[in-house]
Design a protein around this nucleic acid. Structure first.
Lengths: 194, 194
DNA sequence: GGTCAGAGACCAACCGGTCTGTCTTATGGG
DNA sequence: CCCATAAGACAGACCGGTTGGTCTCTGACC
């Protein structure tokens, strides 16, 4: 693992717990065991480091949450798999994200004080929402949803549920409550399908 | 309005947008139009100011969200009213909380760096969850929920949905999406009741 | 004249970022 | 093979600016 990778990895950890603004360059330097020169040799500013860390975070997110989705036929099953991935492989990954979902945390922190950085995060949310909506539409097209179900509303509900779960898990780090939350969303999905 | 009240009010606004750590004492002083002496005459530290602001925030939360609940008989209707209050009187209150739900924002920010302050916030969440659960239990006891409904899971789902809505609204400030989110939760409630 | 809210100079600690210097490694001509 | 040289990686002193907090002083009111 190169120094650059170590810095990105450590930034991920610290940004996820303390946020972007409250993590000082020195915090990262100390944890990695390097110096100003070592960091600014690879990144031209703290913001540059942020973007690199965010990019890495997205890759990890995909790797954790989309694993095994392609093996499933039914769109609704894909969403359920996504939910259990969130529980088992993403939120539980205390190595990379000890502070919970880094995207939710950063979105909340940055929206009013670093809008251009927040936009980066929000675009990811938009894509995620779109993905859920698309899967629900496929399920509906296959005639497997109860009559009168509005896939847009359902997608919004699922997304809200996931985000709420992330915040809750960030707050209390209770595995039991995490299980409850994911189960509740899966129950909801069962309710609307035939 | 006394200087002390002005400071609390302004702190509320700024904490809700920029969070606790990233709001500097100077930011507040400038907005209020006073000086270090004026602030530290009333509060012994930034943390002391935080607690005062949090207490005020709770009072406003109750006033906005619990309004009109007592006029309703059915517990489920109370929850629905709570949801529309959230939409119309709480999240939309840009005067006091221009940055969205201050509790969610603070919980996310403080959980890993100021645990003793975060605990204050989380206790409020716990009470809120308890309130929803109690209302659902009453509804179930009255035989108005479909068979096999787990009120604990439902309460968790509603809470997650609300928190997710808060985060989403904080992120994009879209009134339309806020309406969608609240509607989705209300639809969910209709689904599980008879 | 005593009291106290408020003003603002001041402090040490810390912030992100720059800059110089050192040490290691790669390169290339004889 | 040897050594001059260039290049990149990293260390850490240093910079101006900002942080939360203290302290002294002013001036209005009783």
């Amino acid at each position: 693992m190169t120094l650059k990778e170590k810095i990105i990895h450590e930034s991920l950890r610290q940004f996820s717990t303390k946020g972007f603004m409250s993590t000082s360059i020195n915090d990262i330097l100390e944890a990695v065991g390097t110096s100003k020169g070592g960091l600014y040799n690879h990144f031209k500013s703290k913001e540059d480091l942020f973007l690199a860390a965010l990019s890495e975070a997205r890759q990890i997110w995909r790797q954790r949450n989309l694993a095994g989705l392609n093996q499933l036929e039914r769109p609704l099953e894909k969403i359920k798999k996504l939910l259990t991935n969130y529980r088992d492989h993403y939120l539980a990954d205390l190595e990379n994200f000890p502070g919970g979902c880094i995207f939710v945390n950063l979105a909340v922190e940055l929206n009013d004080q670093q809008p251009h950085l927040a936009r980066e995060v929000n675009e990811g949310f938009e894509r995620f929402r779109g993905m859920i909506k698309r899967l629900m539409d496929q399920e509906k097209a296959a005639g497997r949803l109860k009559d009168g179900i509005d896939t847009g509303l359902v997608a919004e509900m699922i997304f809200s549920g996931i985000v709420g779960t992330c915040v809750t898990y960030t707050s209390d780090k209770s595995r039991k409550r995490l299980d409850h939350n994911i189960e509740a969303i899966i129950d909801y999905l069962s309710m609307i399908s035939t």
